[in-house]
Simulated assay, not measured.
Amino acid sequence: MTSKQETLVEVRNLKKHFVVKKGLFGRKATFLKAVDNVSFSIQKGETLGLVGESGCGKTTAGRTILKLYEPTAGEILFAGAPLQNLTHKELLPYRKKMQMIFQDPYASLDPRMTVGEIIGDPLDVHKMYEGQDRTDRIKELIELVGLKQDHINRYPHEFSGGQRQRIGIARALAVEPEFIVCDEPISALDVSIQAQVVNMLEELQEKFGLTYLFISHDLSMVRHISHKVGVMYLGNLVEIADAHELYTNMQHPYTKALLSALPIPDPDLAEKSERIHLQGDVPSPLNPPPGCAFQTRCAYAVQACRETKPQLKDMGNGHQVACHIVH
């Protein structure tokens, strides 16, 4: 992390609602509130980990920040410049600065293109390199992610899952970005390969001063790679703090339940630790409960939780919690 804190990415009150059913003949439209009023910032050179159960809105938040989805409301700032209202043409220079590593290395690579064509495609879009310079850049990227130059003319189906994800990372790095959204980049990989990919991402971050939004449900890996961690539940950010602070001093009942599921290598400590079992199912994002989204599964819910949606409040040292019972 850089010594001087400089905010690179900031989102303010970000919302992304998908229309599920259009309102015809005077009926109200039905919306799925995938991301509902989320705010956070990421400093230059740091990694913000975003965790939560499947369907909590992590990936939608990442895609909305990159304008792959149009935000319903809120602000997206990159190095202080607002992006939310930019046209496709106005956004093009920022596309070069912000890239994405996708979750599925099988689906994110065009099977009809060679590795060289896949990595070279962003260079052509942004008119960055031509001729021999383009070829040299592709070779440089191939070696940077631990692949060989003779892989350039092969097709994605000739590679393992880990190698395909390395190709995806090389493609993201091609245009020399400053910010990369890593959308569960290791979840589709074999466990033995996951650590290799994460270590490579850390090395690339140190070498090029990259800033990451690391989206994952693997809490151990998020703790390893992240400087800060945000916890999402049903489209809401319920807690955010420095990684060490969050894992040693979690405050929100949902965060406590989530982290209690972490495996403990020491059998004696594991036997003494208490697993928090949440009762009930996650409410539908089509019809979230009033007040706190977590109140239907929270053992500590009071009347205020059922009436008023809690806002993030600072508990000190940048540790923010959205909970009525935490003081």
Rank of each mutant, 00 (worst) to 15 (best):
S3A: 12
L8C: 01
V9L: 11
L32R: 12
A34G: 12
V35R: 11
V35I: 10
V35K: 11
D36E: 12
S39Q: 12
F40G: 01
S41F: 09
S41P: 06
K44I: 04
T47W: 13
G49S: 06
S54Q: 13
G55L: 08
K58D: 01
T60I: 04
L68V: 00
Y69N: 02
G74I: 06
A81N: 14
A81T: 12
L83Q: 02
L86Y: 07
L91S: 05
M98N: 09
Q103T: 08
Q103W: 06
S108V: 13
R112I: 02
G116H: 07
I118N: 08
I119R: 06
I119C: 09
D121N: 12
L123N: 02
E130G: 08
R134H: 02
I152K: 15
P156H: 13
E158R: 11
E158P: 11
G161T: 11
R164E: 06
Q165P: 10
I169D: 09
I169L: 00
R171V: 02
A172T: 01
L173A: 00
V181Y: 03
E184A: 02
E184P: 11
S187Y: 03
A188K: 01
L189D: 08
S192I: 01
V198H: 03
V198G: 00
M200N: 07
M200H: 09
E203H: 07
F208W: 05
G209C: 03
T211K: 05
T211D: 03
Y212V: 02
D218N: 12
L219C: 01
V222F: 05
V222D: 00
H224L: 01
H224E: 05
S226T: 07
H227E: 04
G230V: 06
V231K: 15
M232F: 14
M232H: 09
V238T: 03
T248G: 15
T248R: 15
N249T: 10
P263D: 15
P265D: 13
A270I: 10
S273L: 09
P283M: 11
P283E: 14
P288E: 11
P290H: 14
C292Y: 01
A301D: 08
A301I: 00
Q303H: 15
P310D: 07
L312V: 02
K313E: 05
D314Y: 04
N317A: 14
H319D: 07
I325S: 14
